[in-house]
Write a protein that binds this DNA or RNA. Structure first.
Lengths: 230, 230
DNA sequence: ATATCATTGCGTTAATTTTACGCAAAGGTA
DNA sequence: TACCTTTGCGTAAAATTAACGCAATGATAT
């Protein structure tokens, strides 16, 4: 049963892919975690992830494990760093290629078919298994940097959203506050937002305009090489 | 001799670390390559790199291989992406963690103790072994992005340099041209340059001012979170 | 020698962008 | 009914960027 059939002249490490999944509930950034059912670190929380198979890339592995453990299909995961400290796994030598993805909260129902996937607000995240605390810090930083180059925020919001919601998201990710009117102007001038509904004729000022992301305009802008400055 | 003594229940990939080494000769960006002495891809050029040992991190591996193959000691390598295509190595499953480093040309004498390390100007780089063409493209992009956040260019220049040399470097990395006077003003205003020599009293206009990088000032700036805009 | 040319240091001005607010309509809340 | 908050739409000042002028001084060519 436990024959060790794969033999090499030199020792080989195991390779895993882990996924830091970010969400946004309108107020704060959330992270999807899995409670470990087995040792090591049994009972502790960790990112979804697992061992890479010999016939898949690390990205494929990340997506597969993500679906197996949280039910999330086709998330667009992106690798950001490979962690290879010699003792990061007490069992054996394991290096992990860490990924992150942005998903809408609605796409994952916490505690789904997955044993115990659960969303945590950033301030409520417990101490994590392995070196996942460190991985989280780096992922969070990547998120911050990335949003200045790409409008990744739109993957975190519903299809249709208000300017305030968008601003809240940017403020949560970047941990700053913007002047509402300047944020409004800057986003509109970028031209990557489209008004969602033709807007009620009798537009009451209190009912905010709904927007959706204009991917075509964004692609256009991106070619010219732009940058979302904040 | 070739006993395969290391056995596992599941197949494990090999892990390598590769190093894209950038230099600058005052005019153009250069890349340090090694000519492969063995199959596969024997005779083709590739980045220095090699198999990770079981008791070292990938960064340690990168530095070790770099020194073994080019004589470069203590380069500060930084990983930027992990390539894991299933067939990227014809021998067996190998994933590689790609790194890059910036060094002064003077630190490496091409064709040193290293079998055949050689600097190539970007325009003269031949088709490379494995997926190293792709790796180079990504490394080059990283370089471009990085220089907007950190004054990495100073690692490529001699200790003491002129403003023109600095500008040439930025122009080479970013592939753009700047107005000399605006570049001059912007760099000086940043405050991360210090005049190297007290400057000749009888300062002839034709003899350019020499500068050196002011690491202390830079560290100060960095804390406040700044960005080198170009 | 002499004329020509490129490099360097130091400015200035106009255009653009960023920042800081003003204000009124309209709905929600006490 | 009296506030208070949210939204949409501006505007003026401040700061930054971009474009370019100019003279001194060596270097180079004739």
């Amino acid at each position: 049963m436990s024959e060790n059939r794969y033999c090499y002249k030199y020792p080989h490490p195991s390779v895993t892919a882990d996924c830091v999944i970010f969400g946004f509930d309108g107020v704060s950034i959330k992270v999807l975690l899995i409670q470990r059912g087995i040792e090591p670190f049994k009972g502790m929380w960790a990112f979804p992830g697992g061992f890479m198979q010999i016939d898949e890339t690390v990205e494929e592995c990340a997506r597969r494990e993500l679906e197996e453990e949280t039910g999330l299909k086709n998330a667009s995961v992106e690798q950001f760093y490979t962690f290879s400290d010699v003792n990061r796994d007490p069992r054996e030598r394991v290096i992990t290629v860490a990924h992150y993805a942005l998903v809408r909260l609605s796409e994952v129902k916490g505690g789904d078919d997955a044993a115990s996937a659960q969303w945590f607000a950033e301030s409520e995240i417990p101490s994590l298994a392995f070196d996942h605390d460190r991985i989280l810090r780096m992922a969070r930083n990547c998120l911050k940097e990335r949003i200045c180059f790409e409008p990744i925020g739109f993957e975190l919001l519903p299809e249709v959203f208000t300017m305030s919601e968008l601003q809240n998201l940017y403020e949560a990710i970047l941990e700053v506050k913007f002047d509402r009117r300047n944020f409004y102007n800057k986003m509109l001038k970028l031209g990557i937002l489209t008004e969602a509904e033709p807007r009620a004729e009798q537009a009451s000022r209190r009912t905010p305009t709904k927007y959706r992301f204009n991917a075509a305009k964004y692609a256009e802008l991106k070619q010219k090489g732009f940058r979302l400055e904040f």
